[in-house]
Every structure is written in C-alpha cells, then in structure tokens.
Nucleic acid binder design. Structure first.
Lengths: 225, 225
DNA sequence: CCTCGCGTTGGTACGCAGTACCGTAACGCG
DNA sequence: CGCGTTACGGTACTGCGTACCAACGCGAGG
C-alpha cells in the first residue's frame, strides 16, 4: 500500500479522494458528479469512499467536527473567567482554520454558493458554533435573550469577515476580524449611565502575552487622549 | 374525487397526505417512514405525493416559500420608511404564522429537534429571512456589518420567543415578542452621552487564554489609576 | 514453511428518495 | 358522441447510503 502500484499517485487514500472530488466538482459540478466517478478517479472502490467520508457532502466539510470540538474545548478552558473575549478568541480559531486552508476554502466557498444543499449544510454547521457560544455565555450571564444576541452577533461578525476574504480582495482578514469583534463588543458594552464597567477590547495579533499587555497599555493611552 | 370512494375521508389530497405523514412520523419516526407508506395511508399513489410536495421534507415545511414572499413583500412595501420597526413587523408576520398553526407547529418542532436533517432545513429557512432583512436594512444604512448584526439580532430574538412558546408554558408569546424586539431596538439605538462611556478596546490574540485574561486584568488595573 | 487471525479493500445486493415517462380514467365542452 | 384537458397511478431508472461477504496482505506463532 505504501508503494502505489499503478496510476494513483500521492498522499493517503483520503487525500486522493478529496482531490479527485474537488477536481470533478469543478469540471462537472456537484450534482453532475457521482460518488462512483470520484472513487474511480481516485483509483479506489466505491466502498472505500464511504469508509473515508460519511457522505458525499462530507468530502467538502471534512474538519468540521474537529473544529467544533476545538472551539468547545477552548470555551471550557476559559469557562471560569467568563468573558466575551473567550468567545471572540474561540471564533478566531475558526477563522484561522479557514485562512490556513487557503485555496481549498475558496473552492469550497464557490461550491457552497452554487449548490443549495451544501449551503444548507454550511449554515447548519455555523449554527453549531453559535449554539456552543450561546451555552457558554449563558453560564455567566443571566439574561438568556442577551446571551443569544451576543452569540449570534459574534458568529455574524465572524461570517462577514470570512465571507469578504473568501470573495477575494482582502489583505489581512485578521485585522478586519479584530475590528469587527471590537464593534460587537462595543455594541454589548454597558450603557453610559450605568456607572463604570469599562469594556476592554484588545487589538493586534500577538501570541505573546507580554505583547498583548503592551498593546493594551497602548490602547489605553491612545484612548485617554 | 369530491365523493370519497373508499377509506380516505376528509379534505383535499394535500391535507390527507400531510395528516398521514405527521401521524406516521409520530408512530414510526421520520426516518422509519417511507414515502410509499405515507401515500398508502393517504389512499393515493406515490406519484401523487411528489406532485403535492416537492420532497419528503417539504411535507413538514409546506408554507415556507409563501411566508418568505410575504415577508419580502412587507419589507418592500415599507421600503420608503426605512426603519428597524419595519423589520420587526415583518418578523412578527413569521411569528403569527406559527402561532396560527398551533398544534401543528408543535409537532413539527418535536420532529425538527430529533431529526438532524430537518433541523438543518429549518435553520436554512430562518437564514433566508435573515438574508431578506439584511438586504433591506442595507438599503438605508451604510454600515454593512451593522446591518448584518441588526438582521441577525432580529432573527435571534424572534427565534428565542418562538422556541419558548414551542416548548410550552408561555401565555402570550406576542407580548414576549414585543419585549424582545424592544431589547433589540434598544441595543442598536444610538448611544447617548457618548463621551461618558469609557470603552477601551483591546486588540490581539494570545493562543493562551489565561495570558489574555491576565493582560485584561492588567489593563483594568492600569485603568483604575 | 505453514496457518491462523486481523485489518483493509472491493464487489454485490438492497432500501429509499426523487425524476421521467406513459397509460388511463374523469370531467367539461362543442 | 368525439375531443382536449387535467389529475392520478404505475413502471422504470439514477444515485446515495448501508449491509454483507469474499479476497488479499501481513505479522505472530507453531
């Protein structure tokens, strides 16, 4: 198996199947491509396809389950501090995953725009993130409706940035993500008469905590002026 | 046809099919019920089923297209007044439809909660309303992201009220709807006394959530000085 | 070397959703 | 009565997804 015998070259069976699927989708469209055709091009049997992917649609959203688990884990890890920032960071996880995928994400985007059933599935997937956020937010906030609005807004902002990037012509989507999240956080900030409650929003992309701290200081200084 | 010949009694063919479908779904579950079984119980042929409903799922969401058109028409009619209130009223249209359905809406809710594919479809349907709202809001508002947040919030609020009613134990859902929409309107109302709201924005991301939390704490301490 | 077990693959058969096509019975109309 | 229209039923087909079974490769142990 490690030595490819005849025509099928490169990568694991799963990878070959995914490449074959996307290529065929581009050539003949999604509905015009049968699972048999995908398996044939990948040089494997039809049964093997359904062993590698649960369904034909699953070829297009292979990492969704993993990503959702990552998001939930991230939220659980931060569950004691209770902040919208944790939600924002979990959402950033999703964005980064798409950015890392690069061209593949764009091809998938084209497919989801043109095939209704795939569009549905993508939307349903996003709703699962929103659900995770909602439940997390509710753990520290009493107002149920407000929790839903928050979770929905984070997802909406994330999707807006992601969509712009997928459509092309965006230099640094993560900066846009920061701006969008800042807008959301500002939206849900406590109103003025309400006493103090200073909302803190961090900007930048520093993986180093000290750098984040510095950015905070800078933001505070800038705001004082 | 107006005179029922043998066993199938009552209403149009469409109604008989829908009743038969929901009854069978309750008895044997959605996946355990075939289209043949539905047609048989309704006393018609299989072909007739697909003439009355585009698909098996369509039996459960029969009025969706009509409702969506109503919503769009409502928005178009109000397109000159340009207000979030118009969106709220259009959303109320959807709520009222469910309330009028009564018990049928509850049965559908039970189904959508238990069958993933139906859940997906319902979510996708809601997304279409959100899309209509978003496009309407964008016609009078420049900020694209803010338009998305508004549309999403209206849908979220609507869904929250509807869900509570579907779960049972809510006396007057329309009053709750009013309250929820008021909260949304308040959320997007222009801020008063903008200067007194000390909103500090942090930007950036640390892969370690604890580090971010620490940075925020540090920023807040610094701010108190 | 053989063979036993185990995991992976491919092939076949089946159930079911959805589509296309055709035959036919019921109805209205001149 | 003849004719067109319409609604309905039946048959056949494509394609996804599942279940089951046979064949092959491969390492462990005799």
């Amino acid at each position: 198996m490690s030595a490819p015998s005849a025509p099928p070259a490169g990568g694991s069976v799963r990878d070959r199947l995914q490449r074959a699927a996307f290529d065929l989708f581009d050539e003949q469209g999604y509905d015009g491509t049968t699972v048999d055709a995908i398996a044939e091009r990948a040089g494997v049997g039809r049964t093997t396809f359904f062993r590698a992917f649960r369904s034909k649609e699953d070829v297009i959203f292979p990492h969704h389950d993993d990503l959702l688990e990552q998001v939930k884990a991230r939220l659980d890890a931060a569950s004691q501090r209770h902040s919208l920032l944790a939600v924002s960071e979990a959402s950033r996880l999703v964005l980064r995953h798409y950015l890392d995928e690069g061209e593949l994400a764009v091809r998938r985007y084209r497919l989801t725009r043109s095939v209704p059933s795939l569009r549905e599935r993508e939307i349903a997937g996003m709703q699962q993130y929103q659900r995770a956020f909602r439940e997390y937010i509710r753990t520290w906030m009493g107002d149920e409706l407000r929790a839903e609005l928050m979770a929905g807004s984070v997802i909406t902002a994330h999707n807006a940035v992601l969509r712009r990037w997928l459509r092309g012509g965006v230099d640094d989507p993560e900066a846009q993500f920061d701006a969008a999240m800042a807008q959301v956080l500002d939206l849900f900030a406590e109103r003025s008469g309400r006493g103090t409650a200073p909302t803190v929003v961090v900007v930048g992309s520093a993986d180093d905590p000290a750098a984040v701290g510095a950015a905070v200081e800078q933001a505070l200084r800038a705001r004082r002026d």
